[in-house]
Design a protein around this nucleic acid. Structure first.
Ligand SMILES: [Zn+2]
Ligand SMILES: [Zn+2]
Ligand SMILES: [Zn+2]
Ligand SMILES: [Zn+2]
Lengths: 160, 160
DNA sequence: TTCATAATTGTTATAATATAACGTATTTTG
DNA sequence: CAAAATACGTTATATTATAACAATTATGAA
């Protein structure tokens, strides 16, 4: 399985994310239940953000009894608490974390054409955010940095 | 009128924002109708973000016939299009732009205690965001940088 | 093991945010 | 003025998220 941004075997991404999640949760004594793992897998379906109700719909295609919103939101909350996924507030959607476990203030590059979203750790950004906050005497507790535009692939398609 | 962050006469902020909005709209041939101006004034009520439904409620206290959501959302859309307000996606709320007219990619410092929100232009952040995007071959069209935490005033109150 | 407790999930209802669609009124312009 | 464009009113509904409580399952101490 591939996507337009990076041709690659995406099953590897999914399997790796699941393995790492299992390992991290085991270490922390957090219970990665079958439901939570399934939701994580659905979020990792692609490198594009997915909405809670889309997760819900996918879940409904698999289970007999359709799950209800709180079920999905609780699983998503668990995954966020443990740093396994991120919520993109500019899209009301969720995406798998590309480097869970490590403390990080990420920046997201969101392609508005193909929706592929890349999570980037950029030291310059982190430093300048800290600098900005410090100069104002502000203590950052949480940061949301979401850049939307065109990814290299979609830019190329435009000009070619 | 004051707020906890900066003791100041907030009526000046409001009046200045309204004056500048009138002037900018006139220059651009955009119609700052009474409704739109009223909504802008309500958004400028404070230095904290305000939700669309709160604007709606305030509007309802003034008008005889209660306005409906589309009325408010259309006014907010107009004000955003013309750079007079910003939407904070992490809060689903709106705030007056502190320097309309100039093209800018702002960063918001949102106090999670008193809700006072400051819009900052920080050249280091803008530069590092550009640098990040460029290194990925990504073309930024829109940026959302929202930092939440504690403002200097609330930090002081904690330690004192 | 067995019971008590805590954690998870199910279920129903509803809150909060936002937009579609269409009709009416107002403004602008030729 | 008449035509066209723009703005606003109105109703209905879509989308995202949570409250509240019941049922179930896992955990751990006795
Ligand atoms: Zn992949
Ligand atoms: Zn991450
Ligand atoms: Zn003020
Ligand atoms: Zn601004």
């Amino acid at each position: 399985m591939t996507n337009a941004y990076h041709p690659h075997n995406h099953k590897h991404c999914i399997e790796e994310a699941l393995q790492e999640a299992r390992s991290l949760c085991k270490d922390k004594g957090a219970r990665l239940t079958p439901l939570r793992e399934k939701v994580l897998e659905l979020v990792w379906q692609s490198h594009s953000p997915i909405g809670a109700y889309d997760v819900l719909a996918e879940l409904g295609r698999l289970e007999e009894r359709a799950a209800q919103p709180p079920t999905v939101y609780r699983a998503l909350d668990f995954l966020m608490e443990h740093g396994l996924i991120h919520r993109l507030s500019s899209l009301n959607a969720f995406i798998g974390c590309s480097h869970p476990g490590e403390q990080h203030n990420s920046c997201f590059l969101i392609c508005e054409k193909c929706r592929v979203t890349q999570e980037i750790e950029h030291l310059g950004i982190e430093a300048s955010l800290k600098d900005c906050a410090q100069s104002q005497g502000f203590q950052i507790k949480d940061s949301s940095v979401e850049l939307s535009g065109l990814c290299p692939n979609c830019l190329g398609a435009d000009t070619e």
